[in-house]
Computed example of a mutant assay.
Amino acid sequence: MTATETAAETAAAGTGRTRTPRPTALSAVWLRDNCGCAECRDPGTGQKLFQITDLPDSLAIASAEQRTEAGRDGSGSGDGSDSSEGWDVVWSPDGHRSHYDAAWLAAAAQPDPRAEDGKELWPFAEDLDGRLPETSWDAYRSDDRERLRMLDAVRSLGFCLLRGVPLEDGQVQQVALSFGFVRETNYGLQFEVRVEEQPNNLAFTNVAITPHTDNPYRDPVPTLQLLHCLVNDALGGDSGLVDGFAVAARLREQDPEAFAVLTTTPVEFAFRDAVTELSAHRPLIDVDAEGRIREVRFNNRSLGTLRLPAARTDAFYRAYRAFAELLLAPEAQLEFRLGPGDCLIFDNTRLLHARTAFERGGARHLQGCYADLDALLSTVAVLRRTHEEQN
């Protein structure tokens, strides 16, 4: 540490300021790659103007001076600001100058919003007693804070419930368009969940549907599903949700061998009808490079034929059964009834959904569509940023 750095840190400590990481304690190439000055990033888009190969091979910090007062001239920052508290860095061997904002340097690494550590898990239905994420359609449309609260609940808890959505054909697509875009599939832009005379899927019958994720035979799978209830006068036909991430985490804790098998064994999921033939080979539990749960695919109706050596096949089925026993346990399932005007939005890569059987002669009609998490997460980020700027 240089004398300048030591003096600056001592002064900051004396004023009670939050200490930020010293540039010299960080990766030099990472720090330089994140320079936000106008030479390195386009001021309009914030996108980089250089390739990693343009940086000097012998890159090093020549000097680093802590800025303790905003307003002093600078040459840019990690977040694009050039007049904030933080560190002024001069680079060797090219003499390039950078400024790194203190808040940017101090910020902890943000969790991947798609992985388990970016979620609030609920392994049992009772974990959500008295705190269902719900609001009225009017409040959702008229109040950006309420819209943010609901959409952020999809990110954190995996779902939200909008009440009083107009009973109009195609309204489910309008809900999807309120935060993103409709994902078209072989079922169309939207699909009708009701009893059909010649169904191509058990969802379009009156039989019970056990907890599952939709479209596991697609890659990429639709990451969000919306279901809008128009009529539900039938005896039965209640809905259920299970937190697949939370249950997978329980499996990892209770039976690490089974968890390892299910994260490393690709299985075929398949769907076929007269005009469609789809398949995807993915594990039931998908993890990222750090081993964090990032996706669950579970659908006994779409699971194809496993073709592995007998020992691996037996290991898979033992692990599959262990996972299924946890997923299908009654205490894991949050049960509720959708009434006319209710619209459920949920994360199809995390939550399993279910339905009890209902009387075939009873009226039950839901309209559904698919959407994608990236658009929802974008809307959440913009709404949050706007809210912070206004406060």
Rank of each mutant, 00 (worst) to 15 (best):
T205H: 00
E277L: 09
G158R: 02
W122L: 13
D101M: 04
F269W: 13
D42Y: 06
A280K: 00
Q51S: 08
A258G: 06
Q110L: 11
L327D: 05
G95M: 10
D273Q: 13
V172L: 01
T210G: 01
T185I: 09
A106H: 04
C40K: 01
L230N: 00
R194N: 06
R163G: 07
P113R: 05
K119L: 07
Q390A: 15
G16M: 05
L328K: 04
D169W: 03
A38F: 04
F181W: 11
D138R: 13
F358C: 02
S239R: 00
L376I: 09
T386E: 15
K119A: 12
R17N: 11
L161V: 14
G71A: 06
T20C: 12
L161H: 09
G80N: 12
V247L: 11
G180I: 03
L177S: 14
L352R: 01
A25Q: 13
P266K: 03
D255H: 04
R385I: 11
H212K: 03
L235G: 12
D57T: 08
P283H: 09
A12Q: 11
I209H: 03
T20K: 00
D144W: 06
T205G: 02
E192L: 07
D144F: 05
D372I: 03
A12E: 08
L326C: 07
A25N: 14
A280W: 01
A8M: 12
A371C: 14
Q66T: 04
D286R: 15
G164K: 02
T135H: 01
D143S: 12
D129F: 05
R41N: 05
D33E: 13
E146M: 14
P220D: 11
N299G: 12
D101I: 03
L132A: 09
Q66I: 05
F316W: 06
C229V: 02
H281T: 08
Y100A: 06
T10D: 13
E120T: 07
L224E: 01
P43F: 05
R384W: 08
G44L: 15
N348A: 05
S142L: 15
L308M: 10
S98C: 08
R355H: 01
G44D: 13
P220V: 09
E388I: 09
S279F: 11
E290L: 14
R218D: 02
L227P: 00
G71M: 10
G86L: 03
W87C: 09
G71W: 07
L327Y: 03
M1P: 13
D138W: 12
R301L: 10
E325L: 09
A354M: 10
L352G: 06
E359F: 04
A381K: 04
E168F: 01
D214W: 03
E5K: 04
A289F: 12
Y317M: 08
H212L: 11
E69Q: 09
V165K: 01
R97W: 02
N186V: 10
L105W: 04
R337I: 06
Y317W: 13
A11G: 04
T4D: 13
D374W: 05
T223S: 15
A260L: 07
A234L: 07
S84H: 04
D54M: 06
C40P: 00
Q367M: 04
T356P: 03
N201G: 02
E335R: 15
Y317F: 15
H353D: 09
A208Q: 14
L326S: 02
E116R: 06
A12T: 11
L227F: 15
L227D: 00
A125Y: 10
G76A: 09
T263K: 05
V231R: 08
G180F: 04
T2C: 10
F191N: 01
